[in-house]
């Protein structure tokens, strides 16, 4: 099958280009990450990130035939009709909207900065008890769909609002994290967290486009979390 990969090495290339490779899959429905390993055997200079190879570490987010996803849990059959059969090429590009360091490796600095801005850690001013802080199963269930984020950046880099204002709009991943702590019955910094979000950009640049929801490899729903924060901000304003 044909694989077309975005190549750029700042040391030698003046501008990026797409490079074509021919890979023999024996008709197997391999994962995109397996294809990358086969390409690397042919051309060791092609760089990409990878670690767990099972969709939990978030290293190998990339743009696969136009859609962001994790290479390790995307089988060829799910990329686009005809790719598995070799009728259409597999096209791999770095995540959009972030500076490219080399080939499929992007500089995630802006993404991590926004994550850090939401103070993604539990805050509780009361002294810790000798055992765990108790939490009902119902309160714990409020964290499901929030804590599972793997920081792969597939969502934020598919969001036009984030492309436009990556420094001021926090983006879906960071906002999901923000709500993860707002929703935690053990966290007491609600007011402080909300006041930091109450400006025209941090959260309100979300226009409900929902690209984040459609690409999240973990099936999470940042738009819903953003909606919950909106409601909390509204209630607070009244």
């Amino acid at each position: 099958m044909k694989v077309s990969i975005y190549r750029y090495n700042p040391e030698t290339d003046r501008e990026p280009s797409m490079k074509e490779y021919e890979v023999d899959t024996n008709g197997k429905d391999l994962m995109v990450l397996d294809i990358l390993a086969l390409v690397k055997e042919q051309d060791s200079s092609m760089s990409y990130r990878r670690s767990c190879r099972e969709g939990v570490c978030g290293s190998d987010g990339m743009n696969i035939n136009g859609k962001n996803g994790l290479a390790c849990i995307t089988p060829l059959s799910q990329v686009a009709p005809g790719v598995l059969e070799g009728k259409k090429p597999l096209i791999l590009r770095p995540l959009p909207g972030l500076p490219v360091i080399r080939d499929l490796v992007v500089d995630m600095g802006m993404f991590y900065n926004q994550y850090e801005k939401v103070q993604p850690f539990l805050q509780n001013t009361s002294p810790a008890p000798a055992i765990e802080r108790l939490q009902t199963p119902e309160d714990r269930a409020k964290l499901d769909g929030l804590y599972e984020c793997i920081l792969c950046a597939c969502c934020s880099t598919s969001c036009p609002s984030f492309w436009w204002n990556p420094d001021k709009f926090l983006g879906p991943a960071a906002l999901l994290q923000s709500y993860r702590f707002l929703a935690d019955s053990r966290d007491t910094a609600t007011e402080e967290r909300l006041s930091k979000l109450d400006d025209p950009f941090s959260l309100f640049r979300c226009h409900g486009i929902m690209n984040c929801v459609s690409v999240c490899p973990k099936g999470l729903n940042p738009t819903r979390a953003i909606g919950h924060i909106r409601s909390m901000l509204l209630e607070r304003g009244i």
Binding site: L122, A128, E132, R133, Q135, R140, L143, D184, D187
Partner: peptide
């Protein structure tokens, strides 16, 4: 206490 979301 650090915030790990244990099941309950």
């Amino acid at each position: 206490h650090m915030g790990l979301p244990f099941s309950r």
